[in-house]
Design a protein around this nucleic acid. Structure first.
Lengths: 137, 137
DNA sequence: TATAATTACTACTAAAAGGTAGAATTAATA
DNA sequence: TATTAATTCTACCTTTTAGTAGTAATTATA
């Protein structure tokens, strides 16, 4: 019952980039060291963030990464969507697509409240909101 | 962000057995058909439930399964524990063991409430509580 | 005692997640 | 133009999760 490693890494990476955005570009080596993420795995995640246009990359010497838009426009849920980790409306504790109007699983009702809180947490938190909060490693 | 298939299956299996417990033993074929769980995979899960002493098995012709104790004594969280799917106190959104008193992740505070609700849902729901609720398939 | 119906055991395969390796491409600058 | 430091691309490896196959052991009963 938790986010995939990849999603967790991606959120932490983007929060870190947001936090350091006034210092100019930040590169993969810096990110990997600061966040204790395996370098090669990190570059693979970065490639996906670039392809999804959450991050812009500058190649070559002195290259690196920066956000492709304002930190207030990127929601945590946008990141989760890239890695199929977003909580879908039809998802329930005992299976996606299992519960519906006629047939609700045994934990359906108890699940509604935490689900809604988590959906809100992901959908309403922007990078700007979380970048200033907590420590990053 | 969801339980493993195995955990979901296990909860549904046990809820179903509880629901039918006055009809005597229930066997693997019945469970697999009623719950749309692949037969061979189900028997593997049953073996774990037996080994964990949540279920008692009677082998041979006319054999099957029944709960090994009262349905009110088996909590959903006991089942999740078997498959490492229980939500641990030290677990946070952005990694197990990552947050502590000095270093909290960016979503730490927002995570507390849904986490507590889910822990309660799992820890305080017995098979008896959920067996009567909702549909089983 | 033979048979049929059941669980238990051992081993395998498939798919997804997590992670690594190495070479190609790009761009700044000496 | 050569070097260096960076991203990108392709391919692979490892671990975990999900699921399958076949056989052995057990037990009721005809």
């Amino acid at each position: 019952m938790q986010l995939s490693n990849t999603s967790q890494y991606a959120i932490r990476i983007l929060a870190y980039i947001t936090d350091k955005k006034d210092l100019g570009l930040i590169n993969a080596t810096q990110l990997a060291e600061a966040l204790y993420i395996p370098y090669k795995f990190l570059t693979k995640i970065m490639a996906e963030l670039v392809k999804a246009d959450l991050v812009e990359s500058i190649r070559g010497r002195d290259g690196g990464y920066k956000l492709s838009k304002s930190a207030s426009e990127i929601m945590v849920d946008d990141i989760l969507n890239l890695f199929n980790d977003s909580i879908k409306d039809e998802q329930c504790v005992l299976g996606i697509g299992f519960c519906n109007g006629l047939c609700k699983c045994a934990l359906h009702d108890q699940w509604m409240e935490p689900k809604l809180l988590m959906q809100r947490m992901f959908r309403e938190s922007s990078l700007e909101d979380i970048a200033g909060v907590g420590c990053k490693i």
